[in-house]
Simulated assay, not measured.
Amino acid sequence: MSRLHEFLGENFVKEPASDKGLLEKFWDNNWGVTNSVGKIRKILVHRPDKEVHALQNAKFDPKAEALILRDDDGEIVSYCLHETAPDLALMQAQHDKMVSILKAEGIEVIELEDDGKLITNKLFARDVGMVVPGGLILTRFAFKFRYGETRLALRTAAKIGMPVLASIQGNGYAEGGSFAVLDAKTAIVGRSIRVNQEGIDQLRDILSWQGMELIVVDLPAHLIHLDETFMMVDRDKALVDITNLPHWFLELLQDRGIKLIITDPNDPPLTNNCLCLSPGKVLFSEKGQSTMKKLQENNIEVIPININEINAMGGGLHCSTLVLDRDDI
């Protein structure tokens, strides 16, 4: 080794890539999340726009119990859970209300980059990435009609200066709605029709680089993402649909000191799909009245909002947002 390189050796990076000091000095922000409940600082969304008008050409399929939109070659390019096309103006008004609440909480709202191409499901920004300490993991979608969204996520990350740590490749697929960070050393993924074993294996390897372990929860066949049935709502409290989670996972949460608040079975689907704004404070669909009362009885502050037209596209509040930066707890 030359004297110069021996001298420069004192400058070698000794900290991990997720080190706060490195991120703030060289990436201008402490990007990433180490938990699912710390106060949100930055969040990604996509305001529904003219792409939703394409669903005017969709046809209701009784077998699917949904509107199905196909292209000229007969391939599915979108769907909607209504029998008629959604009301774009109403959907935009509900989304705008959500964004106004986020901004009132002091959250920086970042819009997903757009290339003008038709991707009707990009409303659900959660699925484009998995955010961990230090940056973003790009997902790989299970369905072709959502494939182009990852490109938009990459463009957005480049624009705002957020580190992209890796992406799911090969024949693997994994989507952000089925991923959660429990703490700085632990993440959870729900295995489903949208998250296969190869995607899980790749994700486990990527997380190991961050010093994190991965807990894999098998979801029932009728669910596609973990956020339909599990959501942290405070440092030591989780909202869970116990009918759709294995007993061992519920025990694991309790063993970690997490109190389980059980979703009321009489409330509609996607009640669990709320957004934790800060410890003990959630943005919540107003349709889940009974569960809302349970949360409040457990000292969780609830901000109710009407998102019925967003629900028609197959997702909820959590689906519609990707948190890019949270406070540590």
Rank of each mutant, 00 (worst) to 15 (best):
G172R: 09
K20W: 00
Q94V: 01
L136E: 05
I188T: 11
I305M: 01
A238T: 05
P48K: 05
G21L: 03
L22Q: 13
T243N: 15
V13P: 00
E6F: 06
N308W: 01
V13S: 12
L69K: 06
F26S: 03
I224W: 00
L203A: 10
N299W: 07
V302A: 05
W248D: 13
G172E: 11
A64D: 03
Q92Y: 01
D264R: 02
G176R: 06
D267W: 00
D201R: 11
L270D: 04
R151A: 14
H5A: 09
K39N: 08
G135R: 06
D327V: 01
V323T: 14
T139N: 10
A187T: 11
I193H: 04
E286G: 02
W31H: 12
E175H: 08
T120M: 14
P269D: 07
F7V: 13
V164L: 10
L165E: 10
T120R: 11
F141W: 09
S278F: 08
I303C: 08
L239V: 06
T34G: 13
D327N: 08
V131N: 08
D115K: 07
V132T: 15
I43D: 06
N35K: 10
V216M: 08
L81A: 00
S192A: 10
R146L: 10
D236S: 09
V181M: 08
K25P: 00
H46V: 00
L123N: 04
L8M: 14
F12S: 14
N306H: 10
L67N: 05
V33G: 09
L55Q: 06
K287P: 00
N311L: 15
D127C: 10
L253S: 09
F60V: 11
E297M: 07
S2I: 01
D201E: 14
D241S: 09
D72I: 09
D234H: 01
G316A: 14
P62E: 14
R151G: 13
L69N: 09
Q169M: 08
A312V: 11
T84Q: 13
Q254Y: 01
R256T: 02
N35T: 12
N272L: 09
A93K: 15
G316K: 11
I43H: 10
K293N: 09
A312T: 13
Q296E: 15
S2Q: 12
V45Q: 06
D218H: 07
E301K: 15
Q202L: 09
G129S: 14
A104F: 00
D61I: 13
A66G: 02
G161F: 12
V77D: 06
Q210K: 14
V217H: 11
V132K: 07
K122F: 03
H82N: 12
H247Y: 12
T271R: 02
L322R: 04
F7P: 01
K185N: 15
L88R: 07
V13M: 04
D114E: 11
I200A: 02
D264T: 02
E24C: 12
D328S: 13
